[in-house]
Structure formats: structure tokens, C-alpha cells
């Protein structure tokens, strides 16, 4: 059994300690987060994470990995081969259960020249695939899963992580960009087959630079549908944004004020799409102040 090593990862506003003796895990983390990783210089940490193989006879037959953070084990042991996805999900759990300093939107967020486009993740939305494609086309990745908002200013804080693509989305992204830097394939996770898209160097380098919210776009993947942006009323945008916020209820009045701040600052749309390349073109046009197809109804 190899000796555990400890890495320090800066991810968005968080500093995370990662201790593990699992050899391939360190390599995978290094592939995704490169310069955001350092060795332990005695930093103050937000979370102290360990990924270990449970001991015992069972470990011979079915190798497993256990995630622990500061003495807690929130999950059952998982297959060892899924160590990296387990790390990612575990870190998400840490953030989701404690980072209420921020409003946490269930949304992909990308930035065009310091202005953020928020893509809330309503079910069946395809937000991850869309965020991945927009990032590959040059937009800065702020986040794929947690849109972190500083409530008092409505600024969006980056949290650039590997974007998990599931099942058919993997092929969709490779078709969109055959050179897309994807990590290893994890064939059997809770969510099916998963590969992660690596955030580019620029997104990692700028992960301490917030962006100002400018567009709020609720995506909806509809097979065969043309790419159409439909303006959404602010009231409806308020309702849907609050619905897509992990900690809206918990934040109470702070959350209410923050959603109001965002909704007043942005142009709001719903967006149906089916083809990834056409969708990216449409959203880039929106970001450049040009619009290709406007649906009827609602007000901007």
C-alpha cells in the first residue's frame, strides 16, 4: 500500500486539502486542475478531504474507495475505479452543505468579457452540454454545477471544475469538438457513463475574478426543435431562478434580495434548442448583442 500524499487544491473561493494513497487519483486531479494544485505549505483549509481504500478482506475481492471530510463519511464506499467522480461529488456535497455564504444556483455559468450568462439547470435542460460547448467555443467557464453568487452584490464567483458529461452528451461534445480535452471514462457510476471536460487554463487562472450577471437563459433541449430565444417576464424569471437555487429557502430574505438583484440586472430568456452548434451560435450572438430568432410573447 503506497503512502498517502496530500495535495492542496484552490477551487474558486475554496481551498481544499486532499489526502489519498490511491495512485491514479492524484494523476487525474492533476490533469484537470494543473496550476491550481500545490503541495501543503500549512494553509488554512475550507475542507480536509480524504479518499482511502477501506481495509479488510473485502478489499481484495471488490476494491473500494471511501470519501471522508473532517471525520465524516457522508457516502457508502464506492468502486475504487470511480475515485475521481467520488472526489468531485464529495466536494460538491461539502460545498452544498456549508457554503451558504453564497447563494448557490443550480446553473451553468459562463462569461463573455467579464459578463456572465446564467444557464439554470431545469430538468432536461441540457445545461451541462451547452456550458461545455460554449466553453469550448471560447467563453470563460465560471461553473457547470454551482453558480456561486455573492448575495450583496449579485456577482458571480467562478468555481471552474471538470464538467461531467453523461452518456450521450459525451458523443455530442466530441462531435462538436473532436479535440475536446476529456478525462478518463467512468463506465459505471450512479449516473451512468461519465467523462469530464477539463476547464481551460484561462478559466483556472481567472478563478478569483468574479463576473457581473448580464443574461439569464433557461435552456430546454427539445429533439428536432429550432434554436429559439423567447424573452421571459421578470416575474417568471424570478420564480424560475428561485426554483433553481439550491439554498434559496435557507437564505430567506438574503436570497430574496439577491434574486431580485439578479433579475433586475439581466435580460431574461427561455431557449429551446436541439443542435449544439446552432445553439452555441445563437447564444454567442446574444452575447454580442445580435439576436437570430426571437420568439413571440413576453417582454424583455
Amino acid at each position: 500500500m503506497s503512502r498517502p500524499t496530500k495535495l492542496i487544491l484552490d477551487t474558486g473561493p475554496f481551498r481544499v486539502g486532499i489526502t489519498s494513497a490511491i495512485p491514479q487519483l492524484g494523476d487525474t486531479i492533476a490533469f484537470f486542475y494543473r496550476d491550481a494544485i500545490s503541495t501543503d505549505r500549512g494553509d488554512v483549509l475550507d475542507y480536509n478531504i480524504g479518499l482511502h481504500r477501506p481495509p479488510g478482506l473485502r478489499a481484495m475481492v471488490r476494491p473500494q474507495v471511501v470519501f471522508d471530510v473532517d471525520g465524516l463519511r457522508p457516502f457508502d464506499p464506492q468502486p475504487l475505479e470511480n475515485a475521481f467522480p467520488v472526489f468531485e461529488w464529495g466536494l460538491n456535497w461539502c460545498i452544498a452543505t456549508s457554503a451558504h455564504r453564497y447563494m448557490m444556483l443550480h446553473a451553468g455559468t459562463i462569461a463573455f468579457d467579464g459578463q456572465a450568462m446564467i444557464l439554470p439547470g431545469t430538468p432536461g435542460s441540457g445545461k451541462s452540454t451547452l456550458s461545455a460547448a460554449l466553453h469550448l467555443s471560447g467563453a470563460r467557464l465560471l461553473s457547470d454545477e454551482f453558480g456561486l453568487v455573492r448575495p450583496e452584490t449579485a456577482e458571480l464567483l467562478p468555481l471552474p471544475r471538470g464538467i461531467p458529461l453523461k452518456n450521450a452528451s459525451i458523443e455530442a461534445i466530441l462531435e462538436f469538438d473532436p479535440a475536446a480535452p476529456l478525462g478518463p471514462t467512468y463506465p459505471k457510476t450512479r449516473k451512468g457513463r461519465v467523462r469530464h471536460l477539463r476547464p481551460d487554463a484561462d478559466s483556472l487562472r481567472c478563478q478569483a475574478q468574479p463576473a457581473v450577471p448580464r443574461w439569464l437563459v433557461f435552456p430546454k433541449y427539445v429533439a428536432g426543435a429550432p434554436e429559439v430565444l423567447t424573452p421571459l417576464s421578470r416575474l417568471e424569471a424570478f420564480r424560475q431562478l428561485a426554483f433553481n437555487c439550491f439554498n434559496y429557502t435557507l437564505l430567506g430574505e438574503t436570497g430574496f434580495e439577491a434574486v431580485d438583484r439578479i433579475v433586475r440586472a439581466v435580460d431574461c430568456y427561455t431557449f429551446t434548442f436541439s443542435r449544439l452548434d446552432a445553439a452555441v451560435t445563437a447564444l454567442q450572438a446574444l452575447a454580442q448583442g445580435r439576436q437570430l430568432a426571437i420568439g413571440a410573447g413576453g417582454k424583455a
Binding site: 417576464s233 421578470r234 416575474l235 420564480r239 430567506g252 430574505e253 430574496f256 431580485d260 417582454k299
Partner: peptide
């Protein structure tokens, strides 16, 4: 929020 109505906390 707009002419359609109010949101209250």
C-alpha cells in the same frame, strides 16, 4: 417586479 404582479417575502 413588473406589471404582472408582486413578489413578496
Amino acid at each position: 417586479v413588473d406589471e404582472d404582479g408582486f413578489v413578496v417575502f
